[in-house]
């Protein structure tokens, strides 16, 4: 279909922009390109032999074109560079942090979408009445709070003032927990960052569901359902609610993108050992290879998810494809 081709070409262009930016940024910086590519840690460990080897390996003495080709070839082989801070390939460093971020983002995405949808259906059903107004105003205000400040507030309330939840990390260090105790420990550590990320993402799906719900409630099939004498709950969820979910499902890609960046900030607040924490350490240590690797991983996954939902969109709602 033509629409798919257009979508795919957009994502390919975006991908090329990202790759070029990733390649050009360190090389355009004034000063030593080796430092910009490898970070400060590398210069400390640098011997003349190593320096010569790195220059020839990355073709820094060759033209920019050849360097770019070199860079692309390395990427194709999954080689994201080497971190002198961790003394390990960037790919491995990222792989170690990725599960925590996926756990956090995945859970937050499911939670905020479900909660937002349920609240949206209820608010749309009660449009203009007290319940709707309170929800709408409350979530709008919540939307003004940056995700990291929501995280800090939760941290202060539950971690510092009430002292019932752990302040940082993903597991208790040196506790050697196993089985159920380990899962409980992971859950306790997950709770605060998860709540912060969920709260930050809830407004989007709430507003979307509420607005669609208001439109759907006007359609004839809802009148039919009412005339049949169905209970309000059945109309709300089985008939109107289900149809209001469509834009939420198709917007999941956008939501995932927002969460992928929100998680960086939230992880930093809670020192949660995922990609965000990795970024934070990399920023302080000027460990550029890790930084570049993480950004490549995040943007590529966001682009992939977006492309995927873009295609899913037409499958789920045939009406959109007529628009093109």
């Amino acid at each position: 279909m033509k629409r798919h081709a257009v979508a795919v070409s957009n994502y390919i262009t975006a991908f090329i922009i990202i790759i070029s930016l990733n390649f050009l940024l360190p090389r355009l910086m004034p000063g030593n390109p080796l430092q910009a590519i490898y970070g400060e840690e590398a210069l400390i460990a640098m011997t003349p032999e190593l320096k010569a080897e790195l220059i020839s390996r990355f073709g820094l003495d060759k033209s920019l074109c050849e360097q770019f080709f070199n860079y692309l070839m390395n990427l194709c082989q999954g080689d994201l560079g080497y971190s002198y801070y961790y003394n390990a390939p960037v790919f491995e460093v990222i792989l170690g942090a990725l599960p925590w971020t996926i756990l956090l983002v995945g859970a937050a995405l499911v939670l905020s979408t479900t909660l937002g949808a349920v609240l949206g259906v209820e608010a749309g059903w009660r449009r203009g009445r007290a319940g709707d107004k309170v929800l709408l105003a409350g979530l709008m205000v919540l939307n003004g709070f940056p995700d990291f400040f929501i995280g800090m507030l939760l941290l202060l309330i539950f971690g510092v003032m009430l002292n019932i939840l752990p302040l940082s990390g993903a597991v208790s260090p040196y506790a050697n927990l196993t089985g159920v105790a380990l899962l409980w420990d992971i859950f306790k550590h997950l709770l605060l960052p998860l709540s912060a990320l969920t709260l930050a993402g809830i407004t989007g799906s709430f507003l979307l569901t509420r607005n669609t719900m208001i439109g759907v409630l006007r359609s004839p099939f809802v009148l039919t359902a009412r005339a049949k004498g169905l209970s309000p709950a059945a109309i709300r969820y089985r008939h109107a609610g289900r149809n209001s979910l469509l834009p939420v499902v198709t917007r999941a890609g956008v939501m995932a993108g927002r969460m992928a960046t929100g998680v960086l900030f939230v992880e930093m607040v809670f020192s949660y050992p995922g990609l965000g924490h990795l970024v934070n350490t990399a920023l302080t240590a000027r460990d550029y290879p890790v930084l570049q690797g993480v950004f490549l991983v995040i943007t590529v996954s966001v682009l992939t998810i977006n492309l995927f939902t873009d295609i899913l969109y037409t499958r789920l709602d045939p009406r959109v494809s007529y628009a093109y």
Binding site: N10, I17, M29, A260, T261, F295, V302, L303
Partner: peptide
């Protein structure tokens, strides 16, 4: 418009962080 659409799909904050890091 192709260029605009392509830029719209990029997660802006991530790119900004990367540029700002340098």
């Amino acid at each position: 418009m192709r260029f605009t659409d392509a830029l719209l799909t990029i997660p802006v904050i991530v790119v900004v962080i990367m540029i700002a890091a340098y």
